[in-house]
Design a protein around this nucleic acid. Structure first.
Length: 196
DNA sequence: GCTACGATGACCT
DNA sequence: GGTCATCGTAGCA
């Protein structure tokens, strides 16, 4: 199966539309907020880097469920990463949240990440986002419009257009231009060659 | 049952 | 630039 069309796939459209949205986490009586500034798309069709590429398992089951839910997985023996499920029931696809711009609850994020962590290092990476937002295995399957986690409507990006590049940290299907980020935003995790 | 490895991050030079 | 901590998962026997 070939990868889906770049401009018509719901997953790729949603990946781009998530850029600039504000993620809100209610944690122990406080609100944590961060603007999404970097994401990557993963899809069962033609994307050998996707966890869903080889079919449904217990770990990736949420990816194959309905859209609008959180898929959280454990990686490298110590980190969690969070994704937004993007396609209809039965299709395994999701968007990885790779970086956030901290907006509110920064001291709580620092308490979760480490007291000496600089603000710009709190959430500039997928596992950092999970740690700063207190997201772990328990959040696998959470709705994205629930009481503990939701997306807030936000102003469209005034300046800073969206950049596109290859994805980071994978060894398969590396050619797919499925990473999206806010150009010139200091909270973006890394800066590979821009494509568009 | 066994084993290789990964959608990472922290720390070092 | 490089090293490595650490373990769940998937694939295979």
């Amino acid at each position: 199966m070939l990868p889906p069309d770049f401009y018509q796939s719901p997953t790729l459209t949603l990946a781009r539309s998530l850029i600039g949205k504000v993620l809100v986490r209610a944690h122990e009586g406080r609100q944590l907020k961060g603007r999404i500034v970097e994401v990557e798309a993963y899809h069962q069709d033609g994307d050998r880097a996707a966890h869903s590429y080889s079919g449904q398992t217990r770990r990736n089951a949420v990816m194959f469920g309905p859209p609008g839910f959180l898929y959280v997985y454990f990686i490298y023996g110590m980190h969690y990463c969070m994704n937004v499920v993007t396609e209809e029931d039965g299709v395994g696809a999701a968007v990885l949240i790779r970086a956030l711009e901290p907006l509110e609850g920064i001291e709580t994020m620092r308490a979760l990440r480490g007291p000496q962590i600089k603000t710009r290092d709190l959430t500039n990476g997928p596992a950092k986002c999970c740690q700063a937002f207190a997201i772990d295995r328990k959040a696998d399957g959470w709705p994205l419009n629930g009481s503990q986690l939701f997306l807030e409507d936000s102003e469209p990006l005034a300046t800073n257009p969206i950049g596109t590049s290859k994805r980071i940290g994978i060894t398969k299907s590396t050619e797919l231009p499925w990473r999206f980020y806010v150009k010139d935003n200091i909270f973006v995790s890394k800066h590979p060659q821009a494509i568009l």
